[in-house]
Design a protein around this nucleic acid. Sequence first.
DNA 1: GTGGTCTAGACCACC
DNA 2: GTGGTCTAGACCACG
Lengths: 125, 125, 125, 125
Amino acid sequence: MNIIISNNSSVPIYEQIKNNIINQIMSNELQEGELLPSIRSLAKDIRISVMTIKKAYDELEIEGYIKSVQGKGTYVLEKNLEQAIEQARKDIEIHISKIIELAIRYDISKNDILDIFDYLYGSDE
Amino acid sequence: MNIIISNNSSVPIYEQIKNNIINQIMSNELQEGELLPSIRSLAKDIRISVMTIKKAYDELEIEGYIKSVQGKGTYVLEKNLEQAIEQARKDIEIHISKIIELAIRYDISKNDILDIFDYLYGSDE
Amino acid sequence: MNIIISNNSSVPIYEQIKNNIINQIMSNELQEGELLPSIRSLAKDIRISVMTIKKAYDELEIEGYIKSVQGKGTYVLEKNLEQAIEQARKDIEIHISKIIELAIRYDISKNDILDIFDYLYGSDE
Amino acid sequence: MNIIISNNSSVPIYEQIKNNIINQIMSNELQEGELLPSIRSLAKDIRISVMTIKKAYDELEIEGYIKSVQGKGTYVLEKNLEQAIEQARKDIEIHISKIIELAIRYDISKNDILDIFDYLYGSDE
DNA sequence: GTGGTCTAGACCACC
DNA sequence: GTGGTCTAGACCACG
């Protein structure tokens, strides 16, 4: 398993691990039923504390991506793409609502927001 | 003073009151030096416990929007617009970053997001 | 805040803390908007590690009972009793479904299950 | 061999296969010494990847239900009924404990729970 | 002061 | 071996 962690990022390490694994599941690099590395082996591998890996796995389990079983390991669950996209759209709507509330409150123009959007969109992979 | 409170919202009532007052200050409906209603009269008015109003006013004071003076009442302070807008822009950037992350992960197009944005922007006051 | 923790219980400490706080919210000992003890002060108070308190608070936040705000503290949210009962009934149905699946698989009689139920129900407070 | 797989279930497919085979063993539809279908023929039959069937068989072997012998196939082992029932009873107790905890917290009566139980029990096969 | 994150160990239960 | 929990510190960002 290839996970690259940046210690300087403002994104918490457990979030980086989560995102990495979600992306691997979504791109089919990790497939349904597959066993993830054990929390201890992954911790050793990428030189991160066990508790941090555990937190990443815990959240992935809550969000329905994986399932940890005591004594056995941690498996990738079936991905329910439709439901995941549905949820993502709802999340995006919530973020946009909050942006609009702030924009109205502080009189930030629609164009300003679209500029920020374009800037950040371009800088991403 | 018009404040509409939703009991079903996941946002705590005192937060709703805070947001409402901040919005009124920022839109100049409440102006610098203006007296806010007393805690007790507002509590009676919108049928909310005195303690809840107190908490909202306390936090607004901590955050520098208003100032309570014993025996005189609570009045609106000078807006620190620059700092507030600075913070709002940072918050907007964070929201947009999360939107972009979701969009990339679930292959939601930029146009789809702009459509949602236009739709929500139009429906707002 | 009174929380009594048993170190000998098979119930994890963070679960005991969670249950205790939920019960206090449900019985109105903790009221909407109220500030919970800080994770550090509670940790010191009941001689438990900060991380354990944090885990309890985190799960309470996920389940919608409280809200932690950086730099400010942790507040009790409005409780939505109807929704909570609705959710509890669904959870109970899921547990019962699993019990029935096991009972059928291993040919455990309905009466046996009712006996276990009566036994455990009686032993509880 | 009749196995019905649901693609929409949150239960991983290999788990569904496992549960199905365990149920057939416990109900004597599959008897001690009987040969299971080969991994490849079953995979073809229910249109599931060979790897998924392999994982189900692997786990069933680890858990002591079946035994694969190279060149001969996979056959059903003697049931360890006592141990399995023991475990099932423990699982049922855990489920009932959680039900009682929810019932007390949300003031759901014993009769309500027994009604749900009767309803679900009746509707099952 | 507050919460948010992280470490480098430890012991337990399950397999 | 595996995951589940817990400790007793630490440093950071926010207020």
